[in-house]
Design a protein around this nucleic acid. Structure first.
Lengths: 196, 196
DNA sequence: AGCATTTTCTGATACAGGTCAAGTCCCAGC
DNA sequence: GCTGGGACTTGACCTGTATCAGAAAATGCT
């Protein structure tokens, strides 16, 4: 199955709308396949995030570097997600984040201008965007709630329940940063979890 | 200025699209004015959030009660915001949150079904929804980032900078809960801030 | 005005999680 | 097959924030 077929499947499933051959041709014409090797950057701090990229294969992390030089991972992304700093993408402001490939990445990427011009007439695409924004807002709300009111252990349990794939695909120090913990604390939580 | 005029102003400003007299009639017909006294609930845990309410006047808090009976405020809302648990509203699932009026509230409320049927044909409304979802997702992302990587003091400074109105309108124990802090810690942070 | 309630502040103490340092394991590259 | 570096763990210690208790100040109610 080609990269575009993966995408067509995804959008049809998410929007509940089938794509015509014409629709598919529009996508094929404007979504630009792009490969990134592990450790390459999709976005660097200070740059404007001009593209969103649909992840066909691979994984990435979105992180910020604080004044003390410590990295904080805001987002971990896998197949079937869109890669971007949406604040920078929609507002065209310089991003505070870096987005780095953690495994070799295959993307289909596009600019917001192209989306407006070519993709917005496609109902399935508009519906997909709706669903994505909704889900993203809800997911962030849930993580926020966890961050302000759960203990470190509860947050980890949550991750195990809701995103078990993360443990397969990402090293523990990345998971720790994603949860807002030091790697040492996560290591201890996991040791305790084994006992019970 | 009537409650509807406040709303018309808001939607025209946010969407960048003027409303026709016909559009206005549609809103007037379907947005239901509703008043809540201080301490009344807009939504209770376990119920489905059937309505979104546009806040014309007043304020509210969205909070969760944990197993130990402690309250955690996820959201503080003022004029010109929409009141709802969007997860429950869009998915029609029972909410984990309570929404309570902190001051007497004047709302214009509507169900999702009515939105789909009557408001979705109005371009300004669709554009407004877009902007709101985007802003909400971005705001949550920023708060999330602050929660996992900032100290208590940095989070408070952030609030002072970005939402100074909150300090005028909400008591400090609510602000503390919103920041994920105990009231005592917030009190100490404020005391320290005075010195420097 | 006077009383009750809520909000805010202060001090003492406890604990979750961070930091630093060292050690083990494991895999990638020569 | 060796080796160097990253990933993960463990232990000792430290710090920020929570918790508990009580006092003071502000607010609301009759």
């Amino acid at each position: 199955m080609s990269n575009f077929d993966v995408f067509f499947d995804y959008i049809q499933k998410l929007s509940g709308i089938m794509l015509s051959e014409d629709d598919k041709r529009v996508f094929t014409a404007h979504l630009k396949p792009k490969k990134l090797r592990k450790r390459q950057y999709f976005l660097q701090e200070g740059d404007v995030c001009k593209y969103t990229g649909f992840i066909v294969k691979g994984s990435a992390r979105t992180f910020r570097v604080d004044e003390k030089g410590h990295e904080h991972i805001l987002k971990l992304s896998l197949e079937d997600w869109w890669l971007a700093d949406f604040e920078s993408y929609y507002h065209l402001t310089p991003s505070r984040y870096n987005i780095e490939a953690l495994e070799d990445l295959e993307l289909l990427q596009i600019t917001n201008a192209q989306v407006e011009e070519f993709l917005s007439p496609i109902p399935a695409f508009v519906a997909m965007q709706e669903v994505i924004k909704q889900n993203y807002a809800i997911a962030n709300q849930n993580r926020l709630q966890a961050a302000i009111s759960y203990t470190a252990e509860e947050r980890y349990d949550d991750l195990v329940t809701n995103y078990p794939q993360f443990l397969q695909r990402f090293p523990l120090n990345m998971i720790a940063s994603y949860l807002g913990l030091s790697p040492e604390t996560l290591s201890r939580i996991r040791k305790n979890a084994l006992k019970s």
